[in-house]
Simulated assay, not measured.
Amino acid sequence: MNSLVQALHDGTRVPRLGYGLWQVEARDSAALVAHAIRTGYRLIDTAEAYYNEEGVGEGIRAAGVPREEIFVATKVWNTHHGHDLTLGAFEASLQRLGLDYVDLYLIHWPSRIRNAYVDTWRALIRLKEEGLAKAIGVCNFAIPQLRRLIGETGVVPVLNQVELHPYFQQRALREFHARNGIATQSWSPLGLWKDRSATPLNDPRVLALAAKHGKTPAQVILRWHLDNGLMLISKSARPARIEENCQLFDFALDDEDLASLASLDRADGRLGPDPETADF
């Protein structure tokens, strides 16, 4: 696989396409991570709240690729917000992963009801200073939360991992990121969520582009992320789909294709929780 990478504002170089472990069963995670790495993925994205960090570590060790070539990201969950709780949660994640450091540590959600994400961020700053987390960022932060985080600490996250797909394109947030040197990383890049049947995968405009390029609808959408300068986390528990989802580097969308997909953005496109109203 073409190891397309992006340089973050702190100099960290990150693969733009990653394999994610959300909703991957712990018993399956080691084999799937090993398969993803052997397929060509070099960014592995997990979290303490995914309950599969042990399997992720096992899969990394089983894959036969040197540790320094694998970019490992994990996240602190809401119940461990606060400076000292976050430091403890990080140490527990390292133990479960069986690693000496992680390449990226993230705040999973701002958890506005706890109102402790600034102190949590200060813990991440310390972990970076100590070399235990090579880079630090956030997930699911809205613009007001990012402004507060940066304003109170002076440290800008290297990236913000957020829900983003053709039906929910997050243009205002992406513009804020661009102005502040924050990379945008997409989760749910295909617009799939639980039992929601409305997905870009079935949209006639996506199907037309799949036919045009001789690719699957999923490959067209994942390529859309790359051609828009986004990073993305793809997830599947099926080895064949893991392989399909990284076969993105032998074609590109042209300006007409991109304009067609830009028109898919919807006011009601968000599938997951809104960080400004979520109560967990």
Rank of each mutant, 00 (worst) to 15 (best):
E163Y: 06
A133C: 05
L159V: 05
T79W: 05
R179P: 00
T46K: 07
R96L: 13
K134L: 15
R38K: 11
L87I: 07
F168Q: 01
R238F: 13
Q6K: 15
R148P: 03
N180L: 07
L226T: 06
E130T: 06
A26H: 10
A208F: 04
P200C: 08
D103S: 01
Y51Q: 15
R27T: 14
L192N: 14
L164Q: 08
T216V: 04
V220N: 08
Y19P: 09
G98M: 04
Q169P: 11
A183T: 00
A198F: 09
P66R: 07
L106I: 09
A252G: 07
W109Q: 01
I125T: 01
Q145G: 06
Q219E: 02
Q169V: 06
R27D: 15
T199N: 02
D227N: 10
F141V: 05
H83K: 15
D103L: 04
S3N: 15
P15H: 03
R196E: 15
L104R: 04
R114Q: 13
D268T: 02
R196H: 15
N245P: 03
G59H: 07
E58S: 14
H108I: 05
S186K: 02
Y19D: 12
L159E: 09
H213W: 10
R266W: 07
V65Q: 14
A218M: 02
D45S: 11
T74F: 02
V138C: 04
D195V: 09
I44Y: 10
K235N: 06
A31H: 14
G98H: 05
G82T: 08
I221S: 08
T120W: 05
G137M: 03
E163V: 11
G269A: 09
A47I: 01
N2Q: 14
G98W: 06
L226Q: 10
E69C: 12
L99P: 07
D119M: 07
Q161V: 03
A172D: 15
A178G: 10
E48A: 14
A63K: 14
V118A: 00
A26F: 03
P157M: 04
N115Y: 01
L8Y: 04
H83E: 13
D279Y: 05
A49Q: 09
S234D: 14
E163T: 14
A208L: 07
P189K: 08
G181F: 00
E130G: 01
W77N: 13
L4K: 14
A36G: 07
V102K: 04
A240G: 03
W109E: 03
F251R: 08
L4A: 14
R205K: 13
H213T: 08
P239F: 10
H80W: 11
T46N: 10
E175V: 07
I150Y: 01
L4C: 01
A135M: 01
D274N: 10
N245C: 00
D279W: 12
K235G: 09
H81Q: 07
H108D: 05
E243Q: 14
Y101S: 14
S234N: 12
L230M: 13
N180M: 02
L261Q: 09
G214V: 06
R241E: 10
E276Q: 13
D203Y: 09
P239T: 12
N245L: 01
S29R: 12
G151M: 04
A237T: 13
F168T: 01
G272F: 11
D279R: 15
V76G: 11
D103H: 04
A123I: 08
R61H: 08
W22L: 14
K75H: 06
I107S: 02
L132D: 06
P15A: 03
